[in-house]
Amino acid sequence: MKAVTWHGKRDVRVDTVEDPRLVEPTDAIVRVTSTGICGSDLHLYEVLGAFMEPGDILGHEPMGIVEEVGAEVKHIKPGDRVVVPFNISCGRCFMCDRGLQSQCETTQVKEFGKGASLFGYTKMYGQVPGGQAEYLRVPQAHYGPIKVPDGPPDERFVYLSDVVPTAWQAVEYAHIPQDGTVVVFGLGPIGQMCARIAQHRGAGTVIGVDLVPERLARAAKHGVTTVDTRDHRDIGDAIRQLTAGRGADSVIDAVGMEAHGAPIGKIAQDLVNLLPQAIAAKLTAGIDRLSVLYAAIDSVRRGGTISLSGVYGGMVDPLPMMELFDKQVRLRMGQANVRHWIDDVMPLITEPSDPLGVEGFATHTLPLKEAPHAYEIFQQKREGAIKVLLQPGPG
């Protein structure tokens, strides 16, 4: 089969690899029909190479048609249309029973002290072959895959794999008061969806912060008050001017470790990745660009809440603990527990009026063979690329 594989920094290729097969009775094989490129994939493209090996198959936002199932898989069958959550969870362990599927004890990567395994995402998360491929082996398929109806286009459902549950959890964790104010840092796919969900759930004012004109324009079309970081020396002051001088009730950081405008952090990351892999792996996990997190702390009002959905990898990052303590800030974060939120978001996805605007959410839909170009324009924010879907198959 054809699959998108990692070969080094900014080097992804479409290779011919061995077809997946059933290994465990809880496995399924899915023929992928659509698969997204996530902002988190760009961390692999740029920063986290020390945890990758050439030939690793990328991608964790797939959907498709079930081809085969193992003997213990009962809730789906060949021919069913399914979305595959990005975290691999069993549905029956201590953590899954508590709605923490991203911490599943059955698939935890204990070697690296991490939570549940993820598709297509480094040794730290299990090195499980990903979904940017023609076919995908799905472990724990007795629980993970989400059956969706035939008929509507893939784009109606594919974001159930990551984007919609991640944004929903980010908004849930933000504890936005009814008619309150929320700031969303980063208007990539997750930030855009956070803004839409916050509006849907009753936020009074949604403020979006970014520096990419296309992203700011897209958010503004959906009623978001936008702040262009290039126009302000102090983002916290800009937010306070929009919030009666006190700051936002809630702040969502949808950027994470690769914040633009943090050149010192970028230089440090680049230098680390020049080191031998074993040394780089230890040091990369200690370095983030924290400018957005600092801005979030500055922008939230006293007694407010910060929700982190952007991925951070640092182990030794300095946090301004005095400011967090003094402002009495509540802080929540973590990988999305995809399966936990499906009952909440599925009615919005299947609603004919499409209240979250998932159809047309992708700015680019390209054949799988054009994955290298897709990664390049997404990483460099060219050609208006905000969300990219890949489609395996002819073309």
Rank of each mutant, 00 (worst) to 15 (best):
3 A>K: 00
5 T>M: 01
13 R>W: 09
18 E>W: 05
18 E>K: 05
22 L>K: 09
25 P>H: 07
30 V>A: 04
30 V>S: 00
35 T>S: 10
39 G>L: 00
44 L>D: 04
45 Y>K: 02
46 E>W: 06
55 G>N: 03
58 L>N: 05
65 I>S: 09
68 E>D: 07
69 V>Q: 05
72 E>N: 11
84 V>N: 06
90 C>F: 01
101 Q>G: 10
102 S>A: 13
105 E>K: 07
113 G>F: 07
114 K>P: 03
114 K>V: 06
117 S>P: 07
117 S>K: 04
122 T>V: 05
125 Y>I: 04
139 P>R: 04
141 A>I: 02
146 I>M: 02
148 V>T: 08
148 V>F: 03
155 E>D: 10
159 Y>P: 07
165 P>E: 09
166 T>Y: 05
173 Y>P: 02
184 V>K: 00
190 I>V: 15
192 Q>M: 10
192 Q>T: 05
196 R>L: 14
201 R>N: 15
203 A>K: 05
214 E>H: 04
225 T>F: 07
227 V>G: 03
230 R>I: 13
237 D>A: 14
243 T>V: 12
245 G>H: 10
248 A>M: 06
262 A>G: 12
268 A>W: 15
273 N>A: 08
288 D>H: 03
291 S>C: 13
293 L>F: 15
298 D>T: 10
304 G>M: 08
317 D>I: 11
322 M>K: 09
324 L>N: 08
328 Q>F: 15
329 V>H: 13
332 R>V: 15
346 M>Q: 12
347 P>S: 12
349 I>P: 01
354 D>S: 00
357 G>Q: 08
358 V>I: 11
361 F>T: 03
362 A>V: 03
363 T>H: 01
366 L>M: 13
369 K>S: 15
369 K>Q: 14
370 E>C: 09
371 A>T: 04
376 E>I: 04
378 F>E: 02
393 G>R: 11
